[in-house]
Amino acid sequence: MASGEFVLETDDLSKEFKGFFAVRGVNLRVRKGDVHALIGPNGAGKTTVFNLLTKFLTPTSGRILYKGEDITRTSPADIARKGMVRSFQISAVFPHLSLLENVRIALQRELGTSFHFWKSDASLAALNDRAEALLEAVGLTEFRSHMAGDLPYGRKRALEIATTLALDPEMLLLDEPTAGMTHEDIVRITDLIGKVAQNRTVLMVEHNLSVVSNLSNVITVLQRGEILAEGSYDEVSKMPEVISAYLGTGNG
């Protein structure tokens, strides 16, 4: 296996919760530049895999490699510093901070003054132009001084993406980016992810199959914690085992 080709790999990854294997022996390969979707029926272990990859859970066994480097024991904050940034299923904003401040939080780490408690926060104004450019990219300029908590759900997700992009990550991990959104919001976010994915690698967990078919070129289907199938949307959607496990239930 040529490590250069794959940005993220897992090696026999398993997670056991008191005798129950939520994830068992998963070998995932995410190729550089791909938009890779992880799908599967409820309880298939998608979110567990996701949390293992982002280090919010520790695997029972197996390894995780990012750009060929073993990151199985690396802390979640350090994963982000290496360029792999996640989103959350429930929108993750800082509700009592303004939109501008939300984006600035992501930008300010690179200033190296994040521990400077004696410095005025006026020094962060140097980041305003970049923060505003990011807000503009997701269509939130007019709300810049609103509190993030006051935004409707779809806009919160857009803000979250702007904040994530502020880190300029090489790899994005998106946990159900369109969950709970109205149709209009879904179209907007799908466009946005498509745009963002052009020079990045994306791995996403997603329920909405039209979003998956629009965006992703590789799909991995999970069932009961194991990989059931892998391939393009057209390939995967024709496999009988996938149809019975996933497409046949509730979506057919």
């Binding site: 350090d78 959350f88 509700p95 901070l97 939080i105 004696w118 410095k119």
Partner: peptide
């Protein structure tokens, strides 16, 4: 000053949503 500093800004982010602050690379 601590509250109104770059450091205070990170503290507020941690108070509001610690997992998110971690995912943005803050230890």
């Amino acid at each position: 000053r601590t509250i109104h500093s770059p450091f205070g800004q990170v503290l507020k982010a941690i108070r509001e949503n610690e997992p998110r602050a971690i995912s943005l690379g803050y230890r």
